Amino acid sequence: MTGNSIALTGTARVRVLHRSDAGPLAEAYLRNREHLAPWEPLRSEDFFTAEAQAASIESKLGLFIAGSDVPWVLVDGSRIIGVLNLSGIVRGPFLSAHLGYWVDKDMTGRGIGSAALEFAVDAARSELGLHRLQAATLPHNAASQRILKRAGFEEIGLAAQYLRIAGSWQDHILFQRILC
């Protein structure tokens, strides 16, 4: 999980987030603002700036160093085309983490999301020694549910008012994948 990039599919690659990604990440979020709005928390105007992304990256890298998160970016050349992360990593008898991801609106339907999830599953199992990954989707996010199911995740339930998304507390379907 070093800074080296790993091929996913076509020209898409995955690598750990870098401090130098602030500008390209802000551009990716701005380019995908409408595409992501139904699936993410409300974002302030400041969120879409390189300065805000630099602060966010510092926080994420601190959690990475602490061993509780792994922040990756999906790239095509120098352009960020998505995000992939493991968060809330718990050790001890649980050995679990939450999985989150998104793919650029112009890159959907190319297998990038599926390849990214397979990469995350492999890294969680082989590099982090995790037993389980969990992911959550809004009930109407059929595309994300298909990707999770293709990656071997199984639906395990419904969490009422699970996350505040697009300005309101929304139910989420929970998925898990047992890794070993």
Rank of each mutant, 00 (worst) to 15 (best):
L128K: 10
L133Q: 03
S114R: 15
M107E: 13
T108I: 15
D106H: 12
N141A: 05
T108L: 08
M107L: 06
G113H: 01
F119R: 11
A123R: 10
V121S: 15
F119W: 14
A116W: 00
A143Y: 03
L138N: 01
R110K: 08
A136L: 06
A142H: 10
D122W: 11
Q134A: 11
I112G: 04
G129M: 10
A116K: 03
A120Q: 08
N141K: 02
M107F: 06
G113V: 05
F119D: 04
L117Q: 01
G109D: 09
R110D: 02
L128G: 03
S126N: 13
S114H: 14
L128Y: 15
P139V: 14
H131S: 09
P139K: 06
A135W: 10
L133D: 00
M107R: 13
L138S: 02
E127C: 05
H140M: 08
L130N: 01
L117G: 00
D106R: 14
A124I: 08
A143C: 06
A135R: 03
Q145C: 00
A124F: 02
I112A: 00
L128S: 06
I112D: 01
R125D: 00
A136P: 02
R110I: 05
A142W: 07
R110Q: 07
G129Q: 08
E127M: 10
F119T: 12
S126L: 12
P139N: 10
M107T: 07
D106N: 14
V121N: 07
R125C: 02
A135S: 04
A116I: 02
G113Y: 00
S126T: 13
E118A: 14
F119E: 05
R125G: 09
S114C: 10
H140Y: 11
S144G: 06
A135G: 06
Q134Y: 09
K105I: 04
V103L: 02
A115E: 01
E118D: 13
D104R: 08
I112F: 12
A136M: 14
L117S: 11
G113K: 06
T137V: 07
D104M: 13
A120I: 06
A116L: 01
T108S: 12
V103A: 03
A120G: 05
